[in-house]
């Protein structure tokens, strides 16, 4: 047994060598701190660059789905949320189970670049070092070191991990063909629910104010929508022109409608990966509303997306015996 990364590369190389897959989806180290690049690895040699760590913050299942063509056989390094996305997309008939070889990787959350930036007051990071995945997962290390022009600081990982990772209930793939280093598998995120609970305690006026503030930062770049694995409509409602359902400007009324509609369109499908929030260049909090809806749907319909490839999303189906007390 080697390190997580060594084992992962070996597994991927084996899949390619045995022609079990056409290519392998994973991450490459990025060109700037805390960014990584999703990549389709097509040769064994190329796989030397395959990396999995806390900077792998894109949803790889989104990358896979976007590039999937009928008949493809694809391998993927899947965190809990990547795997749940795949399962959910299978439930939505996007690709068959046999087409995908899922290699589960033990996950301790991904970093939120903006949290790091805010923590450092915008001072640019020139170098950083993360402990190994093994050290973090086994609880031996819980800080990261960042270095800039005239500073060197230790930051607690818990302070800069993405909010959704703090409350993640499935850090490990619920469905996988192989799992790298079972011993390090995490059952449930140990992070606190504080921020979600704080949100729940807000009055509706306070919530309105919070989201108004968030959505007024939106510049309508659609990075959130395009990073989201469940926003795959060929024609998105915001791009409709006949009729045009709502304005295209950055006025709050327009951005608010856009975000509320998007949240509703992914409700009962959103698995809370947080890719939308991390993709946003202006720091709009998008995942809180999604996670909150997820919780409501679980309470009302007993449904959690991304666990069973054979079950349709709760809001896309109807069962006679489901709880209906919200209908007057």
């Amino acid at each position: 047994m080697g390190t997580i990364n060594e084992d992962l590369r070996k597994q991927a190389q084996k899949l390619l060598a045995n022609k079990e897959i056409d290519y392998f989806v994973g991450c490459r180290q990025g060109t700037i701190p805390f960014r990584s690049a999703p990549h389709a690895f097509r040769t064994e040699a190329e796989l030397d660059q395959l990396t999995f760590d806390m900077t792998c913050s894109n949803n790889l299942a989104q990358f896979l789905h976007k590039n999937y063509k009928k008949g493809d056989k694809i391998g993927i390094a899947a965190k809990g949320c990547d795997a749940r996305t795949l399962i959910q997309l299978m439930a939505e008939n996007q690709f068959p189970r046999e087409a995908i070889k899922i290699i589960g990787v033990p996950c301790c959350g991904v970093l939120d670049q903006k949290k790091i930036r805010d923590k450092l007051g915008g001072k640019p990071v020139l170098k950083y070092s993360l402990p190994s995945m093994e050290e973090i997962l086994s609880g031996k290390k819980d800080t990261l070191t960042v270095e800039g022009k005239d500073f060197k600081e230790e930051i607690k990982l818990a302070d800069v991990v993405s909010n959704n990772c703090l409350v993640c209930e499935y850090p490990s793939a619920p469905l996988a063909d192989t799992f790298i280093q079972e011993g390090l598998k995490q059952e449930k995120a140990s992070g606190s629910m504080n921020w979600l609970e704080k949100f729940e305690k807000m009055s509706s006026d306070e919530r309105w104010e919070y989201f108004s503030k968030q959505y007024s930062k939106c510049i309508r770049c659609y990075a959130c929508r395009n990073a989201c694995p469940f926003c795959y409509c060929e024609q998105c409602i915001v791009d409709d022109s006949q009729p045009q359902w709502f304005g295209k400007s950055t006025n709050l009324s327009d951005t608010m409608v856009f975000h509320i509609i998007r949240t509703l369109h992914v409700a009962s499908r959103c698995i809370g990966c947080g890719a939308c929030t991390r993709a946003c260049p202006t720091g709009v909090d998008l995942v809180t509303l999604g996670l909150y809806l997820d919780k409501e749907i679980k309470e009302r319909f007993g449904y959690t997306p991304g666990l069973d490839p054979g079950e349709l999303p709760a809001l896309c189906t109807y069962k006679e015996d489901e709880k209906q007390d919200f209908i007057m």
Partner: peptide
């Protein structure tokens, strides 16, 4: 294009 999201983050900034 394999990984580009075709978003507007680059152009709008």
């Amino acid at each position: 294009a394999q990984r580009c999201l075709n978003c507007g983050a680059c152009a709008y900034l």
